[in-house]
Nucleic acid binder design. Structure first.
Length: 470
RNA sequence: GGCGGGGUAGCCAAGUGGUAAGGUCGCGGUCUGCAAAACCGCUAUUCGCGGGUUCGAUUCCCGCCCCCGCCUCCA
C-alpha cells in the first residue's frame, strides 16, 4: 500500500496525506529537563527520528518542533534543593540532552521551544483568556485556572475513555477539591510557597503555566492551528494529549492534529525501568558500559515502535554483532568498487523494498530483513567473484539511500597506531617465513589490544574489533 | 473495573486464508598452516490455550489464560 501510519485517534492504519504537501508539520513532546534523559525517552525520540527520515526519503519536507519543558514541579524542586535558580538548574540537563541526541544520531528538530520563553508564556496566557471567555475554563477558589472538561464534548475521544468510569489513583492532589470536576486540569497554577522565586504575572495573579497548555501554545505558535503529525509515548495519550486537543481546539475551533502516533514503552529485563529495581539507565549509563551511540541507536531502532521493546545487554550484544556484519559488508563493497576489474557483465539489482517496508507504518523489522538479505546475496556474489566494481558501487549507493533513514554508517576506518603497525609488520614477516607459532602469538597480542586480524588472499587485514568506536 | 499494546524457535523479531522473513546464539561443512570473515547446511510439523467458520487458519470469528502499560502533569 501507499505510505500509511497507525493513527491512535482512529485506531486504524490510515494512508498518509499532509494538509499542504509536500510540507509536513510534526510536533513531538520533548523532555522535562530535571535529570539526564533515560533510554526509554530516547526510544521515543529515535522513533520520531525514523519517522522524519522516512518521510524525507519519500519526498516530504518535514518541519519538526520539539518542546523542552523547563518548568514543572520536578524542575522547581530540583532548583530549590540545589539552591540555584531554575534556569541554572535546567541548563546543564538541556545541554546534555542535545549532546545525547547527537550521540544517537538523531536529526535535530527545527525548533526547540522552551516553556519559559516569554513569547510562549504570552501565547499561553492569551489562550487561557480565550478559553475563559468561551466558558471552557474557570478560575477556582485556589486562584488556579482549570479547563472545564464537561464543556468540551470530545474530551476523552483520543484515549477512548469513558470519563464517568475514571478511577482515582491517589495521584490526585488532595488540595484539588477546588475543581468543579475531578478531571478538570490546570491551565494556570497559582503560585504557592513551594514555587519560591518561580512565578510569572497573569490576569489571574502570579503563577505558572500548567504542563498541557505549554504544548498547545508552542505547537500552534510554530506550526499553526493544525498539525499533520503529533507524536509521543503511549503514556502521553491520557491526559496530556487529550488536554492538548481540548485546549487547542477550544481556542481555534479547528481539528488540531491529523495523525496521532504513539510509541510503546521500553522495558528493561521485562519490567518498567525504576531506580529501586536497579534497571534504570540513562544513555550515559549505557555508553559507560562500553557501547557506542550507534549501537544503542540500533538496539532502540530495531523493534517496531508500537511493540514494547525489552532492553537487555544481551540485546546490545546482538546489535553489536549485527552492526559488525554491516561494517564488514560495506568494507568489502568499498574494496570491490575500487578494484580495477574489467567492466560489468551484469546489471546491478538494488531495489526499493526497504523503503516499501517502511511505508507500512514504519515496519523496521521488515526493512532490516531486506537489508540483511541483500547483504547475504551480495556477499555470496562477491565470494563467487561475480560482483564487479560497477555493481559494488550500485550497492553502495543503495546503502546510502537506506542509510539516510538508518543513520548507521560506520566510522571511517582509522589509520593504524604506530605500535599496531609495528606488530602487524612483524607478523607479516613471520608469516613470510612460515613461522606460524610467532604469527599466532602476534595475532593474539593484536587481539588483546583490541584489533582483529584476518588473513586474506591479499595479505592480512587489521581492523578494530567490534565494540565501541574509538 | 474501564481502555490500549503484546504473546511466533535459546534469545530478539517480520509475516500471510494455502502451508513460517531476518538478526543473534549453537552445531556441522567449504575456505584457511590454524584462525577470522564470508558462504552452505542443520536448529518452530508449528505460531499462548480451547472451540468455530473454511477444502485449508498462525492469519477470520467466539471464549479463556498470561505479560506490559494508561486511568489526571512518566517517552
Amino acid at each position: 500500500m501507499a505510505l500509511g501510519f497507525f493513527n491512535t485517534y482512529s485506531r486504524a492504519l490510515e494512508e498518509f496525506s499532509p494538509r499542504d504537501p509536500p510540507n509536513v508539520s510534526i510536533y513531538t513532546c520533548g523532555p522535562t529537563v530535571y535529570s539526564n534523559a533515560h533510554i526509554g525517552n530516547f526510544r521515543a525520540y529515535i522513533f520520531e527520528d525514523l519517522l522524519q527520515r522516512h518521510l524525507e526519503t519519500r519526498g516530504f519536507k518535514v518541519h519538526r518542533v520539539m518542546n523542552i519543558t523547563d518548568v514543572d514541579d520536578k524542575t522547581i524542586r530540583g532548583a530549590r534543593e540545589a539552591k540555584i535558580s531554575l534556569t541554572d538548574f535546567t541548563e546543564p540537563f538541556k545541554r546534555r540532552f542535545f549532546e545525547d541526541l547527537e550521540t544517537l544520531r538523531i536529526k535535530p528538530a527545527n525548533e526547540y521551544p522552551g516553556a519559559t520563553e516569554p513569547r510562549y508564556l504570552a501565547r499561553m496566557i492569551e489562550m487561557i483568556a480565550e478559553l475563559i471567555k468561551s466558558d471552557l475554563a474557570y478560575q477556582a477558589e485556589d486562584k488556579s485556572v482549570y479547563f472545564r472538561i464537561n464543556k468540551f464534548p470530545n474530551y476523552g475521544k483520543l484515549a477512548h475513555l469513558n470519563l464517568e468510569e475514571l478511577r482515582p489513583t491517589g495521584r490526585v492532589r488532595s488540595d484539588e477539591y477546588e475543581k468543579e470536576n475531578i478531571g478538570d486540569f490546570a491551565l494556570w497554577k497559582a503560585w504557592d510557597e513551594a514555587d519560591g522565586e518561580v512565578a510569572w504575572d497573569s490576569p489571574w495573579g502570579r503563577g505558572r503555566p500548567g504542563w498541557h497548555i505549554e504544548c498547545s501554545a508552542m505547537a500552534t505558535t510554530l506550526l499553526g492551528d493544525q498539525l499533520d503529525i503529533h507524536c509521543g509515548g503511549v503514556d502521553n495519550i491520557f491526559p496530556h494529549h487529550e488536554a492538548e486537543i481540548a485546549q487547542s481546539e477550544g481556542v481555534t475551533g479547528k481539528k488540531f492534529v491529523r495523525y496521532w502516533m504513539h510509541c510503546a514503552h521500553l522495558l528493561v529485563d521485562n519490567q518498567k525501568m525504576s531506580k529501586s529495581l536497579g534497571n534504570f539507565y540513562t544513555l550515559r549509563d549505557v555508553i559507560a558500559k562500553g557501547y557506542s551511540g550507534r549501537e544503542v541507536r540500533y538496539a532502540l531502532l530495531r523493534v517496531h515502535y508500537r511493540a514494547p521493546l525489552n532492553f537487555t545487554f544481551e540485546g546490545m550484544e546482538e546489535s553489536r554483532q549485527a552492526l559488525a556484519r554491516i561494517n564488514k559488508w560495506l568494507e568489502r563493497l568499498r574494496e570491490t568498487s575500487g578494484s580495477a576489474s574489467p567492466e560489468e557483465q551484469r546489471a546491478p539489482v538494488p531495489n526499493n523494498d526497504f523503503q516499501q517496508a517502511l511505508d507500512d507504518d514504519l515496519n523496521i523489522s521488515g526493512a532490516l530483513g531486506v537489508l540483511f538479505e541483500s547483504i547475504r546475496e551480495t556477499n555470496r556474489a562477491m565470494d563467487a567473484n561475480e560482483l564487479g566494481p560497477a555493481a559494488a558501487k550500485a550497492w553502495l549507493q543503495w546503502w546510502d539511500g537506506i542509510n539516510q533513514v538508518l543513520a548507521l554508517d560506520a566510522a571511517e576506518t582509522l589509520a593504524l597506531p604506530p605500535e599496531i603497525e609495528a606488530l602487524a609488520e612483524a607478523r607479516r614477516l613471520a608469516r613470510l617465513a612460515k613461522n606460524w607459532q610467532k604469527s599466532d602469538e602476534l595475532r593474539k597480542d593484536l587481539n588483546a589490544r583490541g584489533w582483529e586480524v584476518r588473513d586474506t588472499k591479499d595479505g592480512q587485514k587489521i581492523t578494530r574489533r567490534v565494540g565501541p568506536e574509538p
